[in-house]
Simulated scan of single mutants.
Amino acid sequence: MGRVTRIVWDFDDIDAAATPQAHLDYLEKTEAFPPLAAVREHTYAALPPGRGVDVGCGRGRAVADLTALGRPAVGVDRSDTMVRSARKRFPACEFTTGDAAALPFEDGSLDWYRAERTYLHIADPLRALAEARRVLRPGGTAVVADQDFDSTVMASPDPALTRTVVTALTDSMADGRAGTRMPALLAGAGFTDVTVHALALAFSSLPPVEPLLIEPAEAVAVAAGVVSEAEARAWRGGLERLDREGTFVVAMTMFVTTGRRP
């Protein structure tokens, strides 16, 4: 087996001029997908009143929503490009560039902490969660939503090959199983009253999931040497055929985990 190639899902090392606008537009479009919108709404409902931070805020959708709901939010993202994009989209909201392990807030100054699809990309989650605990007041709430990419299932003419590709994708991330690991991680970081809810993310057509699931999975599986280029082409071709026939489906599980700072 070849070396697993880690994929980059943000723009940390890409300046704004080089960032493909089509990719930014796609990220904005995904906000409207009903499964992802449902996840956001679930996290909002779990947050208490007061001021908080959205870590890994991306293009700022959640910050704008929460601010409109009367929960003043600061968006933090380690990508300058994402922060600039969020400020442009939502100029009345507050965004800043920062790291999950070094947040720009005083001890105990926030009522809530939110992170969605962020801990997949954090190699040292306990350090980031210790920082979450630091900035929360006693009784403050952390809500973390992440997939376990190993939960991905999809219609495919070759299920065994699909499982090989999915495993390669999962292993290519900093923590591709963050969703199922989060309850133990929150408890290990000193949070109490930890609860978890599992939400299905299901899609019945190929185009919405190609850029952020199918294409990266194909690329990392070939780079890791677990499938050949010919096998990858055949795998993609099988998915495309199912999509044309109207029988394609892919689903994964999003885990929304909540903890309280004692």
Score class of each variant (00 low, 15 high):
residue 130 A to K: 07
residue 117 R to W: 11
residue 121 H to P: 03
residue 73 A to E: 01
residue 121 H to M: 13
residue 54 D to K: 02
residue 103 L to Y: 06
residue 67 T to W: 00
residue 33 F to Y: 15
residue 82 M to H: 13
residue 126 L to M: 05
residue 122 I to N: 04
residue 99 D to Q: 13
residue 132 A to W: 00
residue 49 P to D: 14
residue 32 A to W: 03
residue 83 V to A: 06
residue 106 E to G: 15
residue 136 L to F: 11
residue 138 P to A: 00
residue 42 H to K: 15
residue 29 K to E: 14
residue 120 L to P: 08
residue 32 A to V: 00
residue 38 A to W: 05
residue 110 L to V: 07
residue 131 E to A: 04
residue 49 P to E: 15
residue 83 V to I: 15
residue 105 F to R: 00
residue 70 G to R: 07
residue 74 V to M: 03
residue 61 R to V: 12
residue 79 S to A: 12
residue 73 A to L: 11
residue 102 A to Y: 05
residue 119 Y to T: 06
residue 107 D to R: 13
residue 109 S to E: 11
residue 77 D to N: 08
residue 111 D to I: 10
residue 70 G to L: 12
residue 126 L to R: 12
residue 87 R to S: 07
residue 135 V to K: 00
residue 96 T to N: 00
residue 24 L to K: 08
residue 37 A to H: 13
residue 132 A to F: 04
residue 35 P to Q: 12
residue 139 G to H: 02
residue 109 S to W: 10
residue 53 V to H: 06
residue 54 D to N: 06
residue 56 G to Q: 04
residue 69 L to C: 10
residue 22 A to V: 09
residue 52 G to A: 08
residue 60 G to R: 05
residue 79 S to Q: 05
residue 134 R to C: 02
residue 140 G to L: 04
residue 142 A to P: 04
residue 101 A to H: 02
residue 72 P to E: 07
residue 140 G to M: 07
residue 85 S to T: 15
residue 79 S to W: 07
residue 117 R to Y: 12
residue 69 L to D: 13
residue 67 T to I: 05
residue 96 T to A: 13
residue 20 P to N: 14
residue 71 R to F: 06
residue 97 T to V: 15
residue 124 D to F: 01
residue 39 V to F: 09
residue 96 T to F: 00
residue 62 A to V: 15
residue 74 V to K: 03
residue 135 V to M: 07
residue 57 C to W: 04
residue 33 F to K: 00
